[in-house]
Each structure stands twice: as structure tokens, then as C-alpha cells.
Amino acid sequence: MSEVTQTQITDMVEASGSSECSILLSTVKSLANWSRKHSVWPLPLGLSCCGIEFMATAANRYDMARFGMEVARFSPRQADLLLVAGTLTYKMAQVMTRLYDQMAEPKWVISMGACASSGGMYRSYPVVQGIDEFIPVDFYISGCPPRPDSVLNVLMKLQDKIDRDRSYELTLASPDAPSPLRVDEIAVLPGKRHGPPVALATDGERYVKQGPQKIMARGVKPQEGR
């Protein structure tokens, strides 16, 4: 692999515009998928007991490191997989959507356990009835909490999914091209997920736009200086 230089990959990608070079393009995608699926760095969002079970999955008895996933990153900038483990409240949902927005493409999401997938037994006002109200989900794990076996099973399925992935395009972005990230609106990022916007505006952004009027709707004036 060391003989494949960046220049060679670039040449292959550029040549892929013509149909006779699609084999080369396929090879490059296989290479990219192979490296991606063996270096999925999870961002564990441990919100309740599922987080403990994720720790068991990462520890030496079940040893997630066998799949190249031992590097749990607590920075979304360095993570590929958002693993939402536990009960998500609406107040925490804004943190989760912000983390998801900050992750670089390509990114995947696993909803771990009954609470993250459907609200679980908490059919109540503060609990989000499934994280897919906010972000797209690749895999749901059943269980309350799921055993580490289930988590490993789904992680392997995720590897298969990454390996099958042919949806993205390998293109060279011009340095003069405008950045896809915009501050004031939802950005549609080119890459793995074409189609609808990847995430709703975060709760904090909605709050900034709407202002504090709605907060004190019941006849209480907002405090000065807030």
C-alpha cells in the first residue's frame, strides 16, 4: 500500500471521469472503505445505563479493539460513529444534534437500547421518543440495556455496511470552491448522504432565533440582563 502515493490516487480519481477507468475508481473506493471500516472511532454519548454496557463492550472481556474501534473519541471532530447510549431528553437533544453537526463526514449513528431508539419506558414529557426525531440513524440495537454481544453484532454489521458503501463520490475539490458549511442555515454537505438536510437546526439556534419571549409565556417577565 505504501507504493500508492497521493499523486497516484489523485490520478486515478481524475481518470475516473471516463468510463474505461471505472475499475480504478472501484479499487480506490474499496481501499477507502477498507480503511474506514477498520478504523471506526466511536463517540460514545453515554446518557444512562447503556453507557455502562458500552464500557463493558469496550473493556477487555469483549474487547471492541478487535474491530479497530478501541479509540473512543470524546471530540466529535475526531469521531466517525456517534453511539447514542441511553435516555435522551429534549434538553440533551440539543447537545446531541450539535455533536452530530460537528462530526466530519463520513459519519454513522447507532442508537443503542430501547430508550435511544424509542424512548423506552419513558413515555413522558422530557424524553425524546427516539433519537431519529433529530438525526438519521444507521442501526438500532434492541435491549434494555443491550448485552455487549448485541453491540458487537451491530458493530460488525456496521463494518459490512461501510464495506458495501458505494454512495459517495471521489472528487477533488477546488481550493476556490465555497465552503459547504454556512453559519446561518442548515448546510447540505456533499458526500455520503445526499438528499434532505442531515440534521435539524439545534435547539440553541432555535432559541437564539426565536428569542426569549416564548419562555415566559405565562405572565412572568424575563429578568433583566438575561
Binding site: Q94, K214, R226
Partner: peptide, 26 residues
């Protein structure tokens, strides 16, 4: 500083009132 402490700041309703719906408030 009388602001909400548990619920999101833009939450509508007062959850522990008896007439708050048991479920369906979303």
C-alpha cells in the same frame, strides 16, 4: 434569576401541575 432549571428554556407548560397531560405532550 427566575428561569427554568430542569426543562429547556423554551418548554411550554408546567409539568407537575395536575392538569398537565400524562403523555402526548411533545
Amino acid at each position: 434569576d427566575l428561569t427554568r432549571i430542569y426543562m429547556p428554556q423554551d418548554f411550554d407548560g408546567w409539568p407537575l401541575r395536575r392538569d398537565f397531560p400524562m403523555q402526548g405532550h411533545n
